[in-house]
Design a protein around this nucleic acid. Sequence first.
DNA 1: TTAGATTTGCATAAATTTGACAAGTCAATT
DNA 2: AATTGACTTGTCAAATTTATGCAAATCTAA
Lengths: 97, 97
Amino acid sequence: MSNQFGNKIRLLREENNLLLRQVAPLLEIDSPQLSKIERGERQAKKEYIPLFAKIFKVTIDELLTLWLADQLFDVIQGEPMADEALKSVSKTIKRKK
Amino acid sequence: MSNQFGNKIRLLREENNLLLRQVAPLLEIDSPQLSKIERGERQAKKEYIPLFAKIFKVTIDELLTLWLADQLFDVIQGEPMADEALKSVSKTIKRKK
DNA sequence: TTAGATTTGCATAAATTTGACAAGTCAATT
DNA sequence: AATTGACTTGTCAAATTTATGCAAATCTAA
Protein backbone atom coordinates (compact mmCIF):
# COMPACT_ATOMS: atom_id res chain seq x y z
CA MET A 1 0.00 0.00 0.00
CA SER A 2 1.06 3.49 -0.67
CA ASN A 3 0.41 6.08 1.97
CA GLN A 4 2.85 8.81 1.22
CA PHE A 5 0.46 11.51 2.26
CA GLY A 6 -0.49 10.07 5.63
CA ASN A 7 3.11 9.20 6.41
CA LYS A 8 4.16 12.76 5.71
CA ILE A 9 1.39 14.20 7.85
CA ARG A 10 2.31 12.02 10.77
CA LEU A 11 5.95 13.00 10.36
CA LEU A 12 5.11 16.67 10.27
CA ARG A 13 2.81 16.40 13.23
CA GLU A 14 5.44 14.68 15.30
CA GLU A 15 8.12 17.14 14.26
CA ASN A 16 5.85 19.89 15.44
CA ASN A 17 5.12 18.07 18.69
CA LEU A 18 1.42 18.17 18.14
CA LEU A 19 -1.12 15.59 19.25
CA LEU A 20 -3.93 14.16 17.18
CA ARG A 21 -6.42 15.90 19.41
CA GLN A 22 -4.67 19.19 18.81
CA VAL A 23 -4.61 18.95 15.04
CA ALA A 24 -7.93 17.22 14.40
CA PRO A 25 -10.10 20.16 15.51
CA LEU A 26 -8.30 22.42 13.06
CA LEU A 27 -9.72 20.24 10.30
CA GLU A 28 -13.03 19.93 12.11
CA ILE A 29 -12.73 16.18 12.46
CA ASP A 30 -12.10 13.99 15.49
CA SER A 31 -8.88 12.29 16.50
CA PRO A 32 -9.81 8.80 15.33
CA GLN A 33 -10.44 10.19 11.88
CA LEU A 34 -7.10 11.92 11.71
CA SER A 35 -5.45 8.79 13.00
CA LYS A 36 -7.00 6.86 10.15
CA ILE A 37 -5.84 9.41 7.62
CA GLU A 38 -2.28 9.27 8.89
CA ARG A 39 -2.25 5.50 8.74
CA GLY A 40 -3.79 5.44 5.30
CA GLU A 41 -6.87 3.62 6.46
CA ARG A 42 -8.78 6.44 4.88
CA GLN A 43 -7.93 9.09 2.30
CA ALA A 44 -7.85 12.69 3.38
CA LYS A 45 -10.36 14.92 1.71
CA LYS A 46 -8.75 17.20 -0.82
CA GLU A 47 -10.03 20.23 1.04
CA TYR A 48 -7.83 19.33 3.98
CA ILE A 49 -4.63 19.85 2.04
CA PRO A 50 -4.44 23.64 2.32
CA LEU A 51 -5.26 23.35 6.01
CA PHE A 52 -2.48 20.85 6.61
CA ALA A 53 -0.10 23.04 4.66
CA LYS A 54 -0.92 26.00 6.84
CA ILE A 55 -0.76 24.06 10.09
CA PHE A 56 2.64 22.58 9.35
CA LYS A 57 4.05 25.47 7.34
CA VAL A 58 4.78 23.52 4.19
CA THR A 59 3.72 24.22 0.62
CA ILE A 60 0.38 23.07 -0.69
CA ASP A 61 2.12 21.70 -3.76
CA GLU A 62 4.28 19.38 -1.74
CA LEU A 63 1.32 17.82 0.01
CA LEU A 64 -0.86 17.84 -3.07
CA THR A 65 1.73 15.83 -4.97
CA LEU A 66 1.80 13.16 -2.29
CA TRP A 67 -1.97 13.11 -2.09
CA LEU A 68 -2.35 12.73 -5.85
CA ALA A 69 0.24 9.99 -5.93
CA ASP A 70 -1.80 8.07 -3.38
CA GLN A 71 -4.95 8.48 -5.43
CA LEU A 72 -3.19 7.30 -8.56
CA PHE A 73 -1.74 4.37 -6.73
CA ASP A 74 -5.19 3.30 -5.60
CA VAL A 75 -6.27 3.10 -9.22
CA ILE A 76 -3.41 0.99 -10.53
CA GLN A 77 -2.37 -1.07 -7.55
CA GLY A 78 -2.18 -4.70 -8.52
CA GLU A 79 -2.98 -3.99 -12.15
CA PRO A 80 -0.88 -5.82 -14.71
CA MET A 81 -1.30 -3.01 -17.23
CA ALA A 82 -0.41 -0.26 -14.78
CA ASP A 83 2.77 0.72 -16.56
CA GLU A 84 1.13 1.06 -19.94
CA ALA A 85 -1.72 3.07 -18.51
CA LEU A 86 0.64 5.44 -16.71
CA LYS A 87 2.64 6.01 -19.87
CA SER A 88 -0.50 6.68 -21.82
CA VAL A 89 -1.69 9.28 -19.33
CA SER A 90 1.68 10.98 -19.20
CA LYS A 91 1.54 11.41 -22.94
CA THR A 92 -1.99 12.75 -22.85
CA ILE A 93 -1.01 15.26 -20.22
CA LYS A 94 1.98 16.47 -22.19
CA ARG A 95 -0.14 16.91 -25.27
CA LYS A 96 -2.56 19.10 -23.36
CA LYS A 97 0.05 21.62 -22.20
CA MET B 1 -11.42 15.07 -21.29
CA SER B 2 -10.04 11.68 -21.94
CA ASN B 3 -12.34 8.94 -23.07
CA GLN B 4 -10.03 6.49 -24.70
CA PHE B 5 -12.04 3.53 -23.56
CA GLY B 6 -15.41 4.72 -24.77
CA ASN B 7 -13.96 5.89 -28.06
CA LYS B 8 -12.42 2.49 -28.63
CA ILE B 9 -15.64 0.68 -27.81
CA ARG B 10 -17.61 2.81 -30.22
CA LEU B 11 -15.03 2.21 -32.91
CA LEU B 12 -15.09 -1.52 -32.36
CA ARG B 13 -18.86 -1.62 -32.32
CA GLU B 14 -19.06 0.25 -35.58
CA GLU B 15 -16.39 -1.88 -37.18
CA ASN B 16 -18.45 -4.89 -36.24
CA ASN B 17 -21.63 -3.31 -37.54
CA LEU B 18 -23.43 -3.73 -34.29
CA LEU B 19 -26.09 -1.47 -32.83
CA LEU B 20 -26.27 -0.20 -29.28
CA ARG B 21 -29.35 -2.29 -28.73
CA GLN B 22 -27.51 -5.38 -29.92
CA VAL B 23 -24.51 -4.93 -27.66
CA ALA B 24 -26.16 -3.51 -24.54
CA PRO B 25 -28.07 -6.68 -23.64
CA LEU B 26 -24.83 -8.63 -23.69
CA LEU B 27 -23.69 -6.48 -20.80
CA GLU B 28 -27.14 -6.60 -19.23
CA ILE B 29 -27.60 -2.86 -19.48
CA ASP B 30 -29.86 -0.76 -21.70
CA SER B 31 -28.87 1.20 -24.79
CA PRO B 32 -28.82 4.63 -23.18
CA GLN B 33 -26.31 3.40 -20.66
CA LEU B 34 -24.03 1.98 -23.29
CA SER B 35 -24.37 5.19 -25.22
CA LYS B 36 -23.21 7.10 -22.17
CA ILE B 37 -20.27 4.79 -21.68
CA GLU B 38 -19.15 5.21 -25.27
CA ARG B 39 -19.37 8.97 -25.03
CA GLY B 40 -17.57 9.03 -21.70
CA GLU B 41 -20.50 10.44 -19.84
CA ARG B 42 -20.18 7.43 -17.59
CA GLN B 43 -17.31 5.10 -16.79
CA ALA B 44 -17.78 1.49 -17.69
CA LYS B 45 -17.74 -0.88 -14.79
CA LYS B 46 -14.55 -2.87 -14.64
CA GLU B 47 -16.52 -6.09 -14.89
CA TYR B 48 -17.62 -5.13 -18.39
CA ILE B 49 -14.12 -5.23 -19.77
CA PRO B 50 -13.87 -8.98 -20.29
CA LEU B 51 -17.32 -8.94 -21.84
CA PHE B 52 -16.36 -6.21 -24.30
CA ALA B 53 -13.18 -8.08 -25.12
CA LYS B 54 -15.13 -11.18 -25.93
CA ILE B 55 -17.80 -9.40 -27.95
CA PHE B 56 -15.31 -7.57 -30.13
CA LYS B 57 -12.59 -10.21 -30.15
CA VAL B 58 -9.83 -8.09 -28.74
CA THR B 59 -7.57 -8.73 -25.77
CA ILE B 60 -8.64 -7.82 -22.26
CA ASP B 61 -5.28 -6.17 -21.71
CA GLU B 62 -5.80 -3.73 -24.54
CA LEU B 63 -9.13 -2.54 -23.18
CA LEU B 64 -7.97 -2.62 -19.58
CA THR B 65 -5.09 -0.30 -20.41
CA LEU B 66 -7.44 2.24 -21.95
CA TRP B 67 -9.85 1.91 -19.07
CA LEU B 68 -7.12 2.42 -16.48
CA ALA B 69 -5.75 5.40 -18.38
CA ASP B 70 -9.18 7.02 -18.20
CA GLN B 71 -9.38 6.39 -14.46
CA LEU B 72 -5.94 7.88 -13.95
CA PHE B 73 -6.79 10.84 -16.07
CA ASP B 74 -9.83 11.54 -13.94
CA VAL B 75 -7.60 11.82 -10.90
CA ILE B 76 -5.04 14.23 -12.30
CA GLN B 77 -6.99 16.25 -14.84
CA GLY B 78 -6.43 19.92 -14.25
CA GLU B 79 -3.95 19.29 -11.45
CA PRO B 80 -0.82 21.43 -11.50
CA MET B 81 1.20 18.70 -9.78
CA ALA B 82 0.02 15.95 -12.10
CA ASP B 83 3.43 15.34 -13.61
CA GLU B 84 5.18 15.01 -10.30
CA ALA B 85 2.55 12.69 -8.97
CA LEU B 86 2.72 10.46 -12.05
CA LYS B 87 6.48 10.22 -11.78
CA SER B 88 6.23 9.35 -8.13
CA VAL B 89 3.78 6.55 -8.79
CA SER B 90 5.82 5.15 -11.65
CA LYS B 91 8.77 4.89 -9.32
CA THR B 92 6.73 3.23 -6.63
CA ILE B 93 5.43 0.71 -9.11
CA LYS B 94 8.89 -0.11 -10.39
CA ARG B 95 10.14 -0.63 -6.88
CA LYS B 96 7.41 -3.14 -6.26
CA LYS B 97 8.35 -5.42 -9.14
C1' DT C 1 -2.33 1.12 38.40
C1' DT C 2 -3.37 5.52 36.33
C1' DA C 3 -3.46 8.92 32.78
C1' DG C 4 -2.91 10.33 28.31
C1' DA C 5 -2.57 9.15 23.43
C1' DT C 6 -3.84 6.50 19.78
C1' DT C 7 -6.38 2.81 17.46
C1' DT C 8 -10.31 -0.20 16.50
C1' DG C 9 -14.96 -1.30 15.61
C1' DC C 10 -19.42 -0.30 14.69
C1' DA C 11 -23.69 2.13 13.57
C1' DT C 12 -25.60 5.71 11.15
C1' DA C 13 -25.51 9.28 7.65
C1' DA C 14 -24.14 11.37 3.60
C1' DA C 15 -22.51 11.27 -1.00
C1' DT C 16 -21.79 8.97 -5.26
C1' DT C 17 -22.87 5.71 -8.71
C1' DT C 18 -25.97 2.85 -11.13
C1' DG C 19 -29.96 1.30 -13.64
C1' DA C 20 -34.30 2.00 -15.76
C1' DC C 21 -37.44 4.58 -18.19
C1' DA C 22 -39.65 8.21 -20.90
C1' DA C 23 -39.09 11.59 -23.98
C1' DG C 24 -36.19 13.87 -27.12
C1' DT C 25 -33.25 14.68 -31.40
C1' DC C 26 -31.55 13.47 -35.82
C1' DA C 27 -31.27 11.33 -40.39
C1' DA C 28 -32.93 8.56 -43.91
C1' DT C 29 -37.00 6.79 -46.28
C1' DT C 30 -41.37 6.89 -48.25
C1' DA D 1 -44.68 15.76 -43.86
C1' DA D 2 -45.04 11.42 -41.55
C1' DT D 3 -42.76 7.20 -40.27
C1' DT D 4 -39.03 4.48 -38.85
C1' DG D 5 -34.76 3.36 -36.65
C1' DA D 6 -30.68 4.72 -34.09
C1' DC D 7 -29.00 7.23 -30.71
C1' DT D 8 -29.07 10.88 -26.91
C1' DT D 9 -30.84 13.46 -22.96
C1' DG D 10 -32.86 14.08 -18.54
C1' DT D 11 -34.71 12.47 -14.39
C1' DC D 12 -35.53 9.61 -10.41
C1' DA D 13 -35.08 6.08 -7.19
C1' DA D 14 -32.31 2.11 -5.77
C1' DA D 15 -27.98 0.44 -4.68
C1' DT D 16 -23.38 0.87 -3.47
C1' DT D 17 -19.67 3.26 -1.50
C1' DT D 18 -17.58 6.33 1.59
C1' DA D 19 -17.65 9.45 5.58
C1' DT D 20 -18.75 10.66 10.32
C1' DG D 21 -19.13 10.27 15.26
C1' DC D 22 -18.92 7.76 19.26
C1' DA D 23 -17.65 4.13 22.54
C1' DA D 24 -14.59 0.96 23.79
C1' DA D 25 -10.08 -1.12 23.41
C1' DT D 26 -5.17 -0.92 23.22
C1' DC D 27 -0.87 0.93 24.02
C1' DT D 28 2.80 3.58 26.53
C1' DA D 29 5.09 5.96 29.96
C1' DA D 30 5.39 7.35 34.68
